[in-house]
Design a protein around this nucleic acid. Structure first.
Lengths: 341, 341
DNA sequence: CTGAAAGCGCTTACAG
DNA sequence: CTGAAAGCGCTTACAG
């Protein structure tokens, strides 16, 4: 009755011997091929359990199987947004028995090695527009039939599954909310000019304002980046030039910076100036005033991304997978609404 | 002159053929064995470069070599501290051509699979005391001679390399600073009673107060957890019972919660009550008042952890590696010091 | 200092 | 529905 002996690794061969089937059949059971007789599956799985067998993924990968790991490419992991993506994805990976390889500074050579070494089955890619993943790397993935999925819009010319959020819809809602407040002069503090998210938010906001009957002159834009520092600096410069009733920041960090400037400058929010954001970062509701913002489901984006890529790995490519997750206006106090916590 | 042909994978065999040496020698060159003649190394490396060869790590792992990947076990990745560790470690990994596998909810079975599948060469482990990694898992790593390293104190009974910070020294400095302010009644808001960091900070603080001639009665402790919520709640309860001159929070989140309570309750900081923290989180200097706190080098801890584990992997075990990184008092405004930004 | 050969633990046509 | 056998691309004694 020596079950799961301490030191020897149990291999597929042990399972085969003890179950009375061949390694080929055991392999088929493990990979859930449909050709195996149900009673066989049952017996083999029983033996696997009693032996505590776990497949050697190096061997599996080497012989053409899957590595059960996916690489996630992220600009960084210190901002709430990226950390949330990672958390969501990692949770699903764990649940589905996948491993998650993290890369933040994706160097082409290292990525090639991952592919060649069969270390990963697929890639989840989130870029911030600046650190764009090399176009030809994506092409090479395509050629080798290694699936990848983008969080956010894929680069021009690359047709890829993607998980997106409704940037346009969210900002449009914000615009209509602004109309309800009868703001007359409005400033949009954007991110980088090259940032897709920022641009989509700008687009949706403009659309909403126009729907609500605003004249283009009521509205100005200032580009910057998704950081508190740029929010502070741009708010300062803009407010020195003229008066605004409201600032819509393309993300909460920018809003935070603007808020900070106002506090220092003695500008009361929302009495003198309304400020709203986008993201619904964890700190938004703890600011004073609490921040009116558009919530995007950061964590769920990671979840859906991982679920989708696993589906693609296991069920084959599906180049048209494009999921768009909803966004939602969170009305709090910084827009001037009299809402308590 | 067909160099690095697009589609075929170049293997060690190609390198061997083109260089005129055997696979064995090529392998030795790649693994930097010292027995190889320098001129041979040069030739082989040249061929590797022109062919753009990258080793197949699945094959390497399977045949007993290294996988060049280390797994990092973390409670989560959403708090600044853990995200910083991860960032530091990932940077070094990238630089040294290692891969980083991330696990946040370490399930024993999944970890065993990593080990058995030869997917990782080593583990970096940071636990928060609650999610403690199974003792027998560590034992099994030891038996299989798979290196691991702890960030923070290893569990009782486990002798392991570790990267620590000077919790005691930092809190002791804080105590002496408190003495300079002549605070008479002091509250320490601790983390979980089981948390090593919290306990070490408490210990160092007590030591410092005692050195400064404080009577034990001047000082009280309240346990909680490293969260804003607990900071808020504990500050509220404690301050309802009696007056304190100062609160030393075991981390910045707790301090933040206390600060929030004070703001709501109309208690002026630092005029009515001083509040200080530990960590020097990125938000600390942007609070108002800016937070006096003890800085710990979060990012560097990750860096040193990865550097150390790589050294251990490549040079062999060194069970005594225990690095202690310094902490440093950051004096700002929340303690009552008249320091500008 | 270098090579021939066995072997790591799987997967996958190919047969039956 | 199942098995025998080749092969994936490395590493490592063993010889020389």
């Amino acid at each position: 009755m020596k079950i799961n002996p301490l030191d020897e690794r149990v291999t597929m061969d042990h399972v085969a011997r003890l179950s009375g089937y061949s390694k080929a059949t055991v392999s088929r059971v493990i990979n859930r091929e449909h050709s195996v007789k149900p009673s066989t599956v049952a017996k083999v799985e029983e033996v696997i359990r009693t032996l505590g067998y776990t497949p050697n993924s190096a061997a599996s990968a080497l012989s053409g199987g899957k590595s059960r790991t996916v690489a996630m490419l992220l600009p960084d992991v210190l901002t709430e947004y990226y950390a949330s993506l990672l958390t969501g994805a990692e949770g699903v990976a764990e649940e589905k028995n996948y491993n998650l390889l993290l890369k933040t500074r994706s160097n082409k050579r290292g990525l090639d090695a991952l592919v060649h070494g069969r270390k990963v089955d697929a890639f989840i890619i989130r870029s911030n527009g600046l650190d764009a993943v090399a176009h030809d790397f994506l092409i090479s993935l395509r050629r080798r039939e290694i699936p990848f999925l983008f969080i956010g819009r894929p680069p021009a010319g690359i047709d890829s599954p993607a998980v997106l959020i409704d940037n346009v819809g969210g900002s449009r809602q914000m615009a209509h909310h602004y109309a309800g407040h009868h703001f007359k002069s409005i400033l949009f503090l954007a991110g980088l000019e090259s940032n897709f998210d920022s641009n989509d938010r700008l687009y949706g906001f403009k659309m909403g304002l126009s729907e609500a009957g605003y004249h283009p002159d009521a509205f100005e834009v200032r580009f910057g980046a998704f950081t508190r520092e740029l929010g502070y600096a741009n708010a300062k410069t803009a407010l020195a030039e003229r008066h605004y009733d409201a600032i819509f920041a393309a993300n909460d960090q920018i809003a935070l910076g603007a808020l900070q400037y106002c506090r220092e400058a003695g500008i009361r929010v929302p009495q003198d100036l309304a400020i709203t954001g986008f993201d619904d970062s964890y700190f938004s509701e703890f600011l004073s005033p609490s921040l009116t913002t558009v919530r995007q489901p950061m964590h769920d984006i990671g979840v859906v991304a991982m679920e989708t890529i696993v589906k693609i790995i296991e069920l084959g490519d599906a180049r048209d997978h494009q999921v768009i997750l909803p966004t939602r206006l969170m009305v709090r106090q910084s827009c001037g609404c009299p809402i308590g916590d």
